[in-house]
Amino acid sequence: MKANRRRKMFTNSSAQVGIGTLIIFIAMVLVAAVAAAVLIQTSGTLQQKAQSTGKQATQEVSSNLIVKNIEGVRAKDSSLVLSQTIDLIRLKVGLNVGSQSVDVNQVVISITDGTTANNLVYAGNQKSYATIGASDGAMDTFNSTDAGKNLQKLLTGTTTTSSAFNNADHYFTVDKIRDEDASFSQSNPVMNTGDLINVYIATTSPSAVSADYKYVGTTNTSAGLKSAGLNLVPRTVVNIILTPESGVVTNADFVTPSSYGVKETVQLYP
């Protein structure tokens, strides 16, 4: 008779430990995948913002106007009796090398004689002085082709939008000197590298208005000069700031000569 055999149940828990480890491993992989997706999405967003910021920064640095020189013109009558003040400023303006195109329609020019400060926009700008929701902000009777007529209206005209005001203390006008690619016009004043323009700022004084001068340069002002509120007598400190839509602000500071003598056109800057 065989001896009784002892039977023992074999127990192995290693499989249970392996399943737990596998679950933890899978969970870690899922977490890592989610984290990687978030990082990739974040890095993509940051890259886009960095590119956009870099483009804007480059434009801000590289796009700027250069004032080549500034001349002042005195009003006169038919007998060549000259005003005692500078009544029109003519700026010769170009672009810096490598500059982006500049829309003159969006340029704001600030000018002060130490007492009065005028903020001027382009005479063809339809929005700056417009009534709310309208596009009637351009200088009244603005001519889309004739720079000479616009200069005349700048010196002698008024505009009524949301209110009535003199053109002389609200607008500036321009005329092209060099425009090889024909990109610049009165209705679309866009400057590219190499372009050169004249910018006209009215500085007509109250004394010149009361004297009823008939000409400013070759422009007939017999319709009557309108005051810009400025008084550019000899030894006046003048500050001009040109602020484009994007790009570097351009400053031009000068002091008018101690005497204008018999000069109709006076060199002011540099």
Rank of each mutant, 00 (worst) to 15 (best):
N69G: 12
S222L: 04
R6E: 11
E245P: 03
A33L: 10
A164T: 11
A130R: 00
K263E: 09
S210C: 04
N12G: 06
S99G: 06
L91A: 14
S246E: 00
Y122V: 01
K127F: 13
L196Q: 15
Y200G: 01
A32D: 02
L225R: 10
P270E: 08
S99F: 08
G20E: 05
N220K: 09
F25Q: 04
Q47K: 12
Y260G: 06
A36I: 09
K92N: 15
D140I: 09
A75R: 08
Y171F: 09
I197D: 02
L230T: 00
S101M: 13
F254D: 07
E60F: 12
G114N: 09
Q56W: 10
S258W: 05
I40A: 11
V237I: 14
T115E: 05
T53R: 11
V266H: 10
A147H: 12
Y260P: 07
T243M: 00
G72H: 01
Q51S: 10
L80C: 10
S222N: 07
Y122D: 03
P244Q: 11
V31W: 13
S183I: 00
N4I: 15
V73S: 03
S83F: 01
V174I: 05
S62W: 12
L225P: 01
G133R: 02
N198F: 13
V81C: 06
V248A: 04
K68P: 04
D169N: 10
G94W: 05
I201E: 10
V81F: 12
N150Y: 06
L39H: 09
V249Y: 01
K55G: 14
N96S: 15
V81N: 08
A50T: 09
L80K: 15
A208L: 00
S14Y: 03
P234T: 04
T160R: 06
G18D: 11
D140V: 15
I24R: 04
V31F: 08
G20K: 12
D146A: 10
S99R: 12
V238G: 03
K127C: 12
I241C: 11
S210G: 00
G261V: 07
S162T: 12
A35Q: 12
N125M: 02
A202D: 06
S14D: 02
T11M: 14
G54S: 06
N166K: 04
N150V: 09
G224H: 05
M9V: 08
G94S: 15
R6P: 13
V31R: 03
A228D: 07
K214A: 13
P270V: 04
M9F: 13
T45L: 14
T218M: 14
E264W: 02
A168Q: 11
N239H: 11
D253S: 04
T243P: 01
S185G: 00
S63W: 07
M191H: 03
N119T: 03
V17C: 00
N198R: 05
Y200P: 03
M28I: 15
Y260Q: 10
V104K: 09
D77Q: 01
Q126C: 02
D212A: 15
Q152L: 11
A252L: 08
F254K: 09
Y122S: 02
S163T: 15
I177N: 13
P270M: 05
Q186L: 05
S227K: 00
L232V: 04
V102A: 00
Q59D: 14
N220H: 03
K49F: 09
L155D: 01
H170V: 03
V93S: 10
D103R: 02
N198H: 04
V81G: 06
S258F: 01
T21S: 12
T42Q: 14
N125Q: 03
N188F: 03
Q100P: 02
S163Y: 06
